[in-house]
Computed example of a mutant assay.
Amino acid sequence: MTEAREHVLTGTRGRLTARAWPAGRPTYVALLVHGYGEHIGRYDEVASVLTEHGAAVYGVDHAGHGRSDGERVLIEDFEDVVTDVHTVAERARAAHPGLPVVMIGHSMGGLIASRYAQRHPGGLTALVLSGPVVGDWELPRRLLALDEIPDTPISPASLSRDPAVGAAYAADPLVWHGPMKRPTLEAFVRTLETVAKGGDVGRLPLLWVHGDDDRLVPLPGSRVGVERLSGGDLTERIYPGARHEVFNETNRAEVFADVTRFLDRVLPR
């Protein structure tokens, strides 16, 4: 597995910890955008697949996540998080001038990546969304209707059919295991609306991967958002029985193969 290097960057809300997984002679740059409550260190296997495919891979712990500064899981404005991801993208572009850039966003990272593509048209060569929080996601509205947010952490069993994935998640000290926070839920609602109204991404090739047993971000709600976001070059792969983290699922080899085949099609030869 490729050894990652850590970098400290200045973000909109303080220090950010970023990771770079180098490739010997990369042919493209891949930017990984992680989900809610987790951190970029959980993407070592994804990064290894991509570096073997020819990518120089970069990712960052969002503010309030992982090793980055900020109150845990507090995101008051996702536009700031998109700006932080752009800071990492610019660093990657400076290190690899002229290479095409693809972005891979999971769950909340799919929302961030979608907004990034809207804010930076022409900046990406391809976009991959995994179980993305786009479209009609009812959880924030349901929780905000309550007087008090329940202290109910994400169930590790909802992530993957592989019990080792849930066990590692539950034991990970960099993962948030507490309740969601009201300002973050409010920011989710605003940004879902912003992305819905932000227009499509034109001819940007888009790959959507999703488990059909995803109970955290149900597939039908995401479909609404993905189809609205796509400008026409949409590839979808729905995996029967798979849960929320398809990159950590029991059929992840199939998922990785679908991602690399997609990139082979859309990247410049």
Results as ranks from 00 to 15, higher is better:
residue 92 A to N: 08
residue 72 R to E: 04
residue 7 H to I: 03
residue 88 V to F: 12
residue 6 E to I: 08
residue 54 G to K: 13
residue 38 E to Q: 12
residue 21 W to E: 02
residue 64 G to N: 12
residue 85 V to F: 04
residue 42 R to G: 07
residue 51 T to A: 12
residue 29 V to L: 10
residue 64 G to A: 12
residue 37 G to E: 07
residue 72 R to N: 08
residue 75 I to F: 06
residue 31 L to G: 00
residue 50 L to E: 03
residue 48 S to W: 07
residue 85 V to A: 05
residue 13 R to Q: 15
residue 46 V to I: 13
residue 63 A to W: 02
residue 91 R to Q: 15
residue 52 E to Y: 08
residue 93 R to S: 13
residue 30 A to T: 11
residue 30 A to C: 11
residue 23 A to K: 00
residue 67 R to F: 10
residue 78 F to C: 02
residue 54 G to D: 07
residue 23 A to W: 02
residue 59 G to N: 07
residue 67 R to N: 12
residue 41 G to Q: 06
residue 38 E to R: 04
residue 18 A to I: 09
residue 76 E to M: 08
residue 88 V to H: 10
residue 28 Y to E: 02
residue 81 V to D: 01
residue 38 E to M: 10
residue 75 I to K: 06
residue 19 R to Q: 14
residue 8 V to R: 15
residue 12 T to L: 07
residue 68 S to T: 02
residue 70 G to Q: 08
residue 64 G to H: 08
residue 19 R to N: 07
residue 57 V to T: 11
residue 58 Y to D: 06
residue 39 H to F: 01
residue 6 E to F: 14
residue 80 D to F: 11
residue 29 V to T: 13
residue 77 D to A: 07
residue 74 L to F: 04
residue 24 G to A: 15
residue 66 G to P: 00
residue 41 G to P: 09
residue 91 R to T: 13
residue 79 E to W: 01
residue 66 G to D: 00
residue 55 A to P: 14
residue 10 T to Q: 15
residue 18 A to Y: 05
residue 36 Y to V: 07
residue 70 G to P: 09
residue 72 R to V: 13
residue 91 R to G: 10
residue 13 R to G: 02
residue 47 A to H: 05
residue 26 P to R: 11
residue 68 S to E: 00
residue 51 T to L: 09
residue 31 L to T: 00
residue 17 T to E: 12
residue 86 H to K: 09
residue 23 A to N: 01
residue 11 G to V: 02
residue 60 V to A: 10
residue 17 T to P: 01
residue 16 L to A: 13
residue 40 I to T: 01
residue 40 I to W: 02
residue 25 R to K: 14
residue 94 A to P: 11
residue 79 E to F: 00
residue 39 H to A: 06
residue 75 I to G: 04
residue 25 R to V: 12
residue 11 G to Q: 05
residue 69 D to P: 10
residue 33 V to H: 02
residue 13 R to P: 03
residue 12 T to S: 14
residue 14 G to Y: 04
residue 82 V to Q: 09
residue 69 D to C: 11
residue 52 E to H: 15
residue 32 L to R: 00
residue 15 R to G: 05
residue 22 P to W: 09
residue 69 D to Q: 14
residue 24 G to C: 06
residue 33 V to P: 03
residue 76 E to A: 14
residue 86 H to P: 01
residue 45 E to S: 08
residue 48 S to P: 01
residue 91 R to F: 09
residue 86 H to Q: 14
residue 35 G to E: 04
residue 75 I to W: 02
residue 34 H to T: 06
residue 39 H to G: 02
residue 19 R to P: 08
residue 89 A to V: 09
residue 51 T to N: 09
residue 74 L to P: 00
residue 61 D to A: 04
residue 25 R to G: 11
residue 13 R to F: 04
residue 54 G to P: 12
residue 60 V to I: 13
residue 52 E to W: 12
residue 77 D to Y: 08
residue 7 H to E: 05
residue 85 V to H: 03
residue 84 D to H: 05
residue 6 E to N: 12
residue 94 A to D: 15
residue 56 A to E: 13
residue 69 D to R: 14
residue 34 H to K: 03
residue 88 V to Q: 09
residue 60 V to L: 12
residue 4 A to Y: 01
residue 80 D to M: 08
residue 29 V to G: 06
residue 63 A to T: 11
residue 54 G to M: 13
residue 72 R to L: 10
residue 79 E to P: 00
residue 32 L to S: 01
residue 83 T to W: 01
residue 15 R to Y: 10
residue 12 T to G: 04
